[in-house]
């Protein structure tokens, strides 16, 4: 990776410090990190804003001296929990990057099953040390979350810019429907398909509905998401609780809601 420390940056004439940034992965597909190196058009600008000291996706040297740690993936082993605690000690700001880090992500689907059975199914007889998949916040304090599976690169760039110039970082608090309407999509329910857009936090620019696919809730619940009504709508539109639960469980963001449905407490 090119040397990125050369030019001093300023904002409105005031010099800004270039934070040292580390990208660290736990159990994940590394898809979120890939999103960041994906866009060549903005990558150079991104790299001139921060000093990347640790990024396995794109560099070989490593350093433990960093200000901001972007941690991708969920915690599935004891050594990962240890690694995460070390990162927490090193970093001023710890950012949970993507749904795995925020909610456990697709990985946490295995938590539904007996762990020994999962290990046998996936790894056969070769011994493998794997535990439940858990979000970062089960182990350490998380300063900032970047939602999505995968994350949206534009959103990360915006968040990093705001971190560097010291602006507050805000996530949309409304659900995906808001962006979906702005994109003038045909509602999936009009097409007879399920969609979790009404309860899922926006920010992805209604990625899935833009492609005529219903939302699976990868960004977790919007503020004040109306789960009871969502369930009613799914039922009225002819979708079973199983279909609803499949979607709600996919990324782990709706765990509390799924637990309530299972316990018969979501009425």
């Amino acid at each position: 990776m090119a040397e990125t420390t050369a030019r001093p940056k300023n904002f409105l004439g005031v010099p800004v410090a270039k934070p040292k940034v580390a990208f660290i992965e736990l159990s994940s597909c590394e898809g979120c990190q890939l999103q960041i190196v994906n866009n060549e058009a903005t990558l150079l600008d991104f790299l001139s804003l921060v000093q990347v000291v640790n990024f396995r996706e794109a560099m070989t040297e490593k350093s433990d001296d960093y200000d901001i740690a972007f941690v991708e993936g969920s915690v599935t082993r004891k050594d990962e929990a240890e690694k995460l605690r070390t990162v927490r000690n090193n970093a001023r700001v710890l950012v949970a990057l993507g749904s795995c880090a925020c909610f456990g992500g697709v990985n946490q689907l295995k938590n539904r099953f007996d762990l020994d059975w999962v290990k046998r199914e996936v790894y056969g007889n070769s011994f493998i040390d794997t535990d439940k998949a858990q979000p970062l916040e089960d182990f350490v304090h998380v300063d900032l979350r970047i939602y999505g599976c995968p994350i949206k690169k534009e959103e990360v760039e915006k968040i990093v810019t705001n971190l560097v110039i010291g602006r507050e970082v805000h996530h949309p608090r409304y659900p995906v429907c808001m962006e979906c309407k702005a994109n003038e999509n045909i509602c999936l329910y009009d097409l007879g398909e399920p969609c979790l857009g009404p309860i899922t936090r926006a920010g992805c620019d209604s990625w899935c509905p833009n492609n005529r696919a219903g939302c699976w809730g990868c960004r977790g619940p919007a503020d004040d998401a109306n789960m009871v009504q969502m369930r009613k709508i799914m039922t009225e539109q002819g979708f079973s609780d199983e279909t609803l639960i499949d979607r709600l469980e996919c990324f782990g963001g709706f765990k509390a809601c799924v637990d309530n449905i299972r316990k018969g407490q979501l009425k």
């Binding site: 810019t161 705001n162 409304y174 659900p175 808001m178 702005a182 009404p198 009504q229």
Partner: peptide, 30 residues
């Protein structure tokens, strides 16, 4: 209110709703 999803669809499809918010963003190159 118990039924409402707070999704904003009604205002988005309404020909007379005019409320808006303003977002200020700084480019990646500052």
């Amino acid at each position: 209110g118990d039924q409402c999803l707070s999704c904003g669809t009604c205002a988005n499809v309404c020909p007379t709703c005019y409320c808006y918010g303003v977002d200020e963003s700084v480019g990646l190159d500052l």
